[in-house]
């Protein structure tokens, strides 16, 4: 049966299409679409000159640079270490493997405020890790380095959980064939395994990046929050809001929202690519 016929067939058989789609769209509009549209509507009330002057003010530029720059760095670290973690979890047996596997989701389930105070305490001068780093002259808490640590923490599950199922499902035959044809282990990894998991790696990277850019709770405790030094963009939105400077808050939020749309678009394209790839392999 062709896809189109099958689709029409299903559509007719299972009742409730109108009401469920209608409910979904209504709820989605009320909770997500209309509120986000309100943000853009509010932004259009600003003149272009005003908008540009807000966005290009040094404090805002610095906050945006800090948020996006550190998020990119944290996502990159998660990409590398996440890949190693997935490799260890999927391919090797070692004591505590299952426990560690389960723990990967902690940053996802642990409230950001809890993570924030825990990391701050850990890396402060008297903390477990802070007192080890202090003699080396490394200060993590209340510096941009602290923000980076928090962003690595929140982004950790994304690369692991995106790549893990793909590596698990990778057919053993592919590697066996490569080995049979005389490829070295490294060549097999580089030319056979890596291309197969690349879309998943990049998707995980983009997800970790998206999450880190907007992260607030776990960062503000450890950041120190000095304007032009360690002040992230989401915090600046909150500060402007508390000063009742709604225009400023809205403008910064609009820029960040457009950025998240772009990341989301990239993730979708990656997944489409990965879908094609998966299809080509099997």
């Amino acid at each position: 049966m062709s896809g189109a016929t099958l689709a029409r067939y299903r559509w007719r058989v299972i009742p409730g299409f109108g009401i469920t789609l209608g409910t979904t769209l209504l709820w989605l509009s009320l909770i997500v679409l209309i509120p986000l549209a309100a943000l853009f509507l509010k932004t259009t009330e600003l003149s272009l000159v005003r908008f540009v002057s807000i966005i290009t003010s040094p404090r805002v530029v610095h906050a945006l640079e800090l948020s996006f720059g550190l998020s990119l760095a944290a996502a990159a670290v998660n990409l590398v270490f996440g890949f190693l973690v997935v490799w260890a979890l999927v391919r090797y047996q070692f004591p505590g493997r299952r426990l560690l596997d389960a723990m990967v989701d902690i940053p996802f389930a642990l409230p950001t405020a809890v993570a924030g105070i825990a990391l701050t305490n850990l890396y402060s001068e008297n903390g477990w890790l802070g007192q080890l780093l202090a003699p080396l002259g490394i200060q993590v808490a209340f510096t941009p380095l602290g923000i980076f640590v928090a962003l690595v923490f929140v982004g950790l599950p994304f690369v692991v959980r995106t790549v893990q199922p793909v590596l698990e499902d990778l057919e053993a035959e592919l590697e066996e064939v490569a080995a049979t044809l005389g490829a070295s282990r490294l060549t097999t990894i580089r030319r056979v395994i890596f291309p197969a998991i690349l879309p998943a790696l990049l998707t995980g990277f983009a997800l970790a990046f998206a999450r880190a850019v907007g992260e607030y709770g776990s960062v503000i405790f450890i950041a120190g929050n000095l304007p032009n030094v360690s002040e992230i963009a989401p915090l600046l939105i909150v500060i402007r809001l508390e000063e009742f400077r709604y225009a400023d808050a809205t403008a910064i939020a609009a820029v960040m929202l457009v950025a998240s749309f772009l990341i989301l678009l990239a993730i979708n394209l990656l997944q489409r690519w990965s879908g094609r790839r998966g299809g080509g392999l099997s």
Binding site: A38, R211, Y216, T250
Partner: peptide, 14 residues
């Protein structure tokens, strides 16, 4: 998922 929680709060304030 990819919208900052701060923005999620802001839109309802707006």
């Amino acid at each position: 998922f990819s919208v900052s929680p701060v923005i999620a709060g802001l839109v309802f304030v707006l």
